[in-house]
């Protein structure tokens, strides 16, 4: 089992190396000269050459790549060409709210959805099941912004339980963070609760109809150990996969949403940097995102190995 996990880790390292090379190469192939952009419209040819030399952009491609890779290994993602501030600092500033919201949303979804899905599967066809699945359809079909405004109207504007908007870092004020994050979490989470509950139901329904569940009944086990011990563990592979995909979608989706609504988050940072040809930031952001995705996949793989002995061939 350890060997299998090590194998996965090595594979992950290869994937990351490939991603790094790809990110670096792609941006260099893109048209446009960052040195010219920084120098501005009135700069002379010599000015541009000087800037290029300072930034190391005149070196051969492979030297640039190796220098960059070496720096990354030490946690240095480079300096923004445009603002002159370290890339890691810029990203960190913007990444905290994004990751915080993703985490709370996924936690809420899992805690709510899995018991709901199990209950629906256990009583398939009953009113519990039908109510659950009706809710799931609603969760899929009501757009997040509609639901979000409804929540704000009720809980923030009328009941005044939580602030209407804004973000508070959990490291500064945990209570404030929880109040601020509650509505966005619920608004974003509804879709994922619906998704995960549906998958849990389908997967549990399959497990419940297996022979070993009949054996568990014949042993004299009660319904709780049968559902949560015998069935859930067998049903867990698709559920874990869905949760993983959910996390990836959430992070990716946040970038797009931010760009569209001009929210100064990580997404906005990326879009601005692309327009300014601020290579180091773009590289840093893509690298961080790829890293998170690869990490999620690695975690899912390892969970598979832990829950299902048959995968540990």
């Amino acid at each position: 089992m350890i060997a299998l996990i090590l194998k996965r880790l090595v594979a992950t390292a290869f994937v990351m190396a490939f991603v790094a090379f790809f990110v670096f190469g792609l941006l260099h192939l893109a048209p446009g000269d960052p040195a010219a952009v920084i120098a501005g419209d009135i700069a002379t040819k010599e000015d541009i050459e000087r800037i290029r030399a300072t930034l190391g952009l005149d070196l051969p491609f492979h030297t640039q790549f190796l220098n960059w890779l070496g720096a990354i290994m030490q946690g240095d993602l480079g300096t923004s060409i445009f603002s002159g501030r370290p890339v890691s600092e810029l990203i960190l500033q913007r990444v905290e709210p994004t990751l915080a919201l993703t985490t709370t949303t996924i936690l809420l979804s899992v805690v709510v959805a899995i018991p709901l899905g199990i209950a629906a599967a256990w009583r398939a066809g009953s009113w519990i099941d039908r109510t659950m699945m009706g809710f799931a359809v609603l969760g899929f079909s009501v757009p997040v912004f509609v639901f979000a405004y409804l929540l704000i109207m009720v809980f923030a504007a009328q009941l005044k339980l939580v602030p209407v908007m804004g973000y508070v870092s959990p490291f500064k004020d945990l209570g404030g963070f929880l109040r601020a994050i509650a509505l966005p979490t619920v608004a974003l989470g509804v879709t994922y609760v619906a998704l995960i509950a549906r998958i849990t139901r389908a997967s549990m329904l399959e497990a419940i109809n297996q022979d070993y569940i009949r054996t568990a009944h014949a042993k004299g086990l009660g319904i709780v150990p049968i559902l949560f011990r015998h069935a859930l563990r067998n049903a867990s592979v698709p559920i874990v996969t869905t949760v993983g995909i959910g996390i990836a979608l959430l992070i990716g989706g946040v970038v797009v949403t931010e760009s569209v609504f001009a929210i100064p988050g990580l997404g906005r940072l990326t879009a601005d940097s692309i327009l300014r040809r601020d290579y180091p930031i773009v590289q840093g952001v893509i690298l961080i995102f790829s890293g998170i995705y690869v990490l999620i996949n690695l975690t899912i793989d390892i969970i598979y190995i832990l829950v299902d002995p048959r995968i540990r061939y």
Binding site: Q210, D211, Y212, R214, T215, A216, A218, H230, R233, N234, V307, D308, P309, R310
Partner: peptide, 13 residues
């Protein structure tokens, strides 16, 4: 009780 299919009657995990 014991059943016909010993593979599927034991919990694989």
């Amino acid at each position: 009780m014991i059943f016909q299919e010993p593979m599927t009657s034991l919990n694989p995990v």
